[in-house]
Structures are given as structure tokens and as C-alpha cells.
């Protein structure tokens, strides 16, 4: 182990701020990417479900209109 105490690890030979900030940014961006991709599946499924409900609603409306026209004749 190159450093013998935790404070030394943080100081990182005086460059602690730079090293740890870049490590933090790297893992933050990776985490965002992973979380976004994992939630993408449920988001897509929810969107597709809304679309399917809309399609059913349209077809029901068509049936209802056809029925109404039929009754009027």
C-alpha cells in the first residue's frame, strides 16, 4: 500500500483534489448511465401500454360510431 494513513490517501501527494474529483465524476456519470438504461425498460413498457390503451380507445370509438350510424338509419 503506497500510503500509510487515510489522510495521506486523501491528500494523494498534494493532488488529492484532482484525482478524487476525476474519479468522482467518472463514477457519477457511469452510475447515471446505468440507472438511465435500467429504468429505460419500464419507461418503454409504460409508454407502449399507454399506446395500446389509446389504440383500444380509438377502435371502441369507431365501433360506437358505426353502431350509432347503424341505429340512425
Amino acid at each position: 500500500m503506497q500510503f500509510n494513513s487515510f489522510t495521506e490517501v486523501l491528500a494523494m501527494g498534494g493532488y488529492g483534489a484532482y484525482v478524487w474529483s476525476s474519479v468522482a465524476i467518472v463514477f457519477a456519470v457511469l452510475l447515471m448511465l446505468i440507472v438511465h438504461s435500467c429504468t429505460a425498460k419500464n419507461r418503454t413498457l409504460r409508454l407502449l401500454r399507454i399506446e395500446q390503451e389509446r389504440a383500444d380507445k380509438i377502435s371502441q370509438a369507431k365501433v360506437a360510431n358505426a353502431q350509432a350510424l347503424f341505429d340512425k338509419k
Binding site: R54, A55, K57, I58, A61, N65
Partner: peptide
């Protein structure tokens, strides 16, 4: 919108 036959298409 239903009157003009656009039911289901309100939010696209």
C-alpha cells in the same frame, strides 16, 4: 374532440 371523431387522439 369526440364530436369531430378524434377520441383517443387527444394527446398525440
Amino acid at each position: 374532440l369526440a364530436m369531430v371523431g378524434l377520441t383517443g387522439l387527444e394527446h398525440i
